[in-house]
Design a protein around this nucleic acid. Structure first.
Length: 685
DNA sequence: GAGCACTGC
């Protein structure tokens, strides 16, 4: 990049470019201007430094402090250090800072360790799934995913080793953030000395304030919560709206990109669309139309980015743009918070997002395109203001912007809560319907979860956790139905197989589907396919990856397999195996006895059974709802009278994903109680 | 008969 505002962050010379590429985190980019500012001097020129003493005062005076600060103000890196310097980590106590994402936890910890000139994993550490990098005797500042801190409450319900807990990115309202908010409020009652810092980038501070304020007197000076706003470090972004709504936002986005390309000064473009189809189409069109640009004009280079893309292609968006070329990144929501791309000056926002929601009435999930929230729109626009003043083009009218909801619906209000209910019960919270959530989930979600847990025998007639089954399912880091097949595997001598199946189901995008699927792709896929269905096909893929493929990326690439996904499955499998060993479940293999494997699947997935109809579609056994085989299933091209499935996702139709052929007799043999539950009333909760 | 937003334990 040839241009940047002198005296500000230059895109090419930041010392942590590698880290910045991978995280949304508010890392502050330090620039070596040739002067010799020490790290400590650099810390003092951050905007947050002006508020240092005030923040420390508030944390001391109030049980909870809400910090509102834009991206780039340095709160994630500086606040824990201020608290450490002020003595909050004396006597072996720890300051924790949670992040919704793994990479963020690592990169911020790494940054802080280098600022403090200590080795990562010593005074400063992090804790994320599969990776604990801290020293229990030495670490005083600990960055962690919110899910990991939640898990720590199983071992130490009052989180006694922490003096201050900072919940970062709280505005995102991830499932575990919300669980932690409720639990921390409970802990504060028993540990009044515990300090909480809730950090949010948006204007929902009032809601956090109301939630944590326990002062019932009519005198606000006795409130135990305080709020402070910090100035950000962003450049201004000029927002443009359409005067009239557009018919086709993909086409409008393409045209807008070319308008910018022709009329505006250099700077890369980021387009937000909703899914892979739209992205592939837009990238193709931009590529085509670029050939009509005059030869003298600046070149244009469109690049796709979404989670399902293999790593090699994902990394292309981070490569330096060649001279005289403008990069156009076409992205899903992954670029809203998970990935930060340097050099973006223009943002085009279609105003929609693809969102997964769980319907408690049917137990089915839907994946639909819905309008974004105002805070999402602001976050997207902000992506244009990281290196210099930018512009955001919203492909909707200003009027429709004001009609958007303020914030997205928190995950806890639109998720399957089976695992959540189980975990709350394991923490001794018996009446989950009365748990103090910041925004309580609809009762139907809770009741559906309770019903499923009862049918799995994780809860007894009184709604209490069963021992040991219920307790073990609560501890397992997988969905309860998946946990059930692991714990029941001893009955069929197939724990080895179930571990692989559970790990493979826990990762997505094992096959890399090319944008125009070739026969070669179908042929490669068929080599692993078996008539019993997708679970055993996954088992074959994983076995081949470990033995013939020697866990190599090249081997995966040649077979259209996602190396990243398979490596992750390997880690998950190892972790699940440790749990089974602890639960004293014998780790045996049934060899190639697919009847045993499939019966074991039925023992957990009996509620997800479907019968084929004469027209080739299916009906669920439980609710008689019409279902279809997802085209990615190996059963898409085969006939199977009875199946069980992992999940249903409704898009254009209700598609079952991950299917296995079963004998209907197994349903009554392995789950006779399930059909009884519908005749009798539900147990008391 | 033809399709899969994004995280996390």
């Amino acid at each position: 990049m040839a241009f940047w505002k002198p005296g500000t962050v230059a895109p090419g010379i930041s010392v942590d470019r590698e880290a910045e590429k991978e995280t949304s985190e508010n890392l502050v980019t330090f620039v070596d201007h040739g002067s010799n500012l020490s790290i400590q001097q650099q810390r003092k020129i951050l905007p947050i430094f002006k508020s240092r003493d005030q923040i420390l005062y508030l944390v001391e005076q109030y049980q909870t402090t809400i910090i509102v600060g834009q991206t780039g103000c340095g709160k994630s890196t500086q606040l824990p250090q201020y608290l450490h310097e002020a003595g909050w980590t004396a006597n072996g106590r720890i300051v924790a800072c949670t992040q919704p994402r793994r990479v963020a936890a690592i990169t911020v910890a790494d940054r802080v360790a280098s600022e403090m000139n200590v080795k990562l994993g010593k005074e400063v550490g992090y804790s994320i799934r599969f990776e604990e990098c801290y020293d229990p005797n030495l670490t005083s500042i600990k960055y962690m995913t919110d899910g990991m801190l939640f898990r720590e409450t199983f071992l130490d319900p009052l989180l006694t080793q922490y003096s201050v807990i900072m919940i970062d990115e709280a505005h995102e309202r991830s499932l575990y953030t919300d669980l932690l908010l409720g639990i921390l409020k409970k802990i504060q009652k028993k540990r009044p000395e515990l300090r909480l810092i809730i950090s949010s980038a948006t204007l929902d501070a009032e809601a956090f304030y109301e939630f944590f304020n326990t002062n019932t007197a009519n005198d606000s000076s006795k409130d135990n919560v305080s709020i402070i706003s910090l100035e950000g470090r962003m450049f201004p972004v000029d927002v443009h709206y359409l005067e009239e709504p557009c018919q086709d936002y993909v086409e409008t986005a393409i045209q807008t990109a070319f308008d910018i390309h022709v009329k505006e000064p250099p700077g890369d473009i980021l387009i937000f669309l909703t899914g892979r189809d739209e992205i592939d189409h837009a990238v193709g069109e931009i590529f085509q139309r670029a050939t009509t640009l005059p030869r003298s004009a600046m070149k244009i280079n469109p690049l796709p980015i979404y989670a399902g893309l293999p790593s090699e292609q994902q990394l292309e968006i981070f490569e330096q743009t060649p001279q005289n070329t403008r990069k156009v990144v076409v992205a899903t929501n992954i670029a809203e918070a998970s990935i930060t791309i340097e050099g973006i000056v223009y943002v085009i926002d279609c105003g929609f997002v693809k969102l997964r929601a769980y319907n408690p009435k049917t137990g089915m999930e839907s994946l639909t395109v819905v309008p974004i929230s105002k805070s999402s729109a602001q976050q997207r626009a902000g992506r244009a203001g990281r290196i210099m003043p930018g512009k955001a083009y919203r492909l909707y009218t200003e009027d429709s912007f004001y009609r958007l909801r303020d914030a997205s619906i928190p995950e806890i209000q639109r998720n399957n809560l089976a695992q959540v209910v189980l975990q709350l019960k394991a923490l001794g919270i018996d009446n989950v319907l009365r748990f103090d959530f910041m925004t309580p989930p609809p009762a139907e979600l809770m009741i559906r979860a309770l019903e499923l847990l009862y049918s799995l025998k994780a809860l007894d007639d009184y709604g209490r956790l069963t021992m040991p089954l219920g307790m073990q399912l609560a501890e397992f880091p997988v969905d309860p139905m998946l946990g059930k097949i692991l714990l029941d595997s001893y009955k069929f001598q197939c724990a080895e197989e179930m571990l692989t199946i559970a790990a493979m189901i826990s990762v997505q995008n094992v096959f890399v589907t090319p944008s125009n699927p070739s026969t070669e792709f179908e042929d490669e896929k068929r080599k692993f396919a078996v008539e019993e269905g997708d679970h055993i096909t996954s088992l074959n893929v994983f076995k081949a990856f470990i033995t013939r493929g020697k866990k190599s990326a090249r081997w995966c690439h040649q077979r259209y397999l996602n190396f990243r996904a398979l490596s992750r499955a390997l880690s998950i499998r190892e972790q699940l195996k440790k749990y089974l060993e602890r639960f004293d479940v014998p780790i045996e293999s049934c060899g190639n006895d697919t009847v045993k494997i499939r019966k074991c699947l039925v023992s957990g997935y009996f509620a997800h059974a479907a019968k084929m109809q004469s027209d080739g579609s299916f009906r669920s056994v439980r609710d008689n709802v019409e279902l279809h085989v997802h085209p990615s299933s190996v059963l898409f091209t085969r006939n199977a009278p009875w199946v069980i499935f992992h999940e249903v996702v409704s898009t254009t139709k209700s598609y079952m994903r991950e299917l296995t052929v079963i004998d209907p007799a197994w349903l009554t043999e392995l789950a006779p109680h399930f059909y009884e539950i519908r005749k009798t009333s539900l147990p008391a909760h």
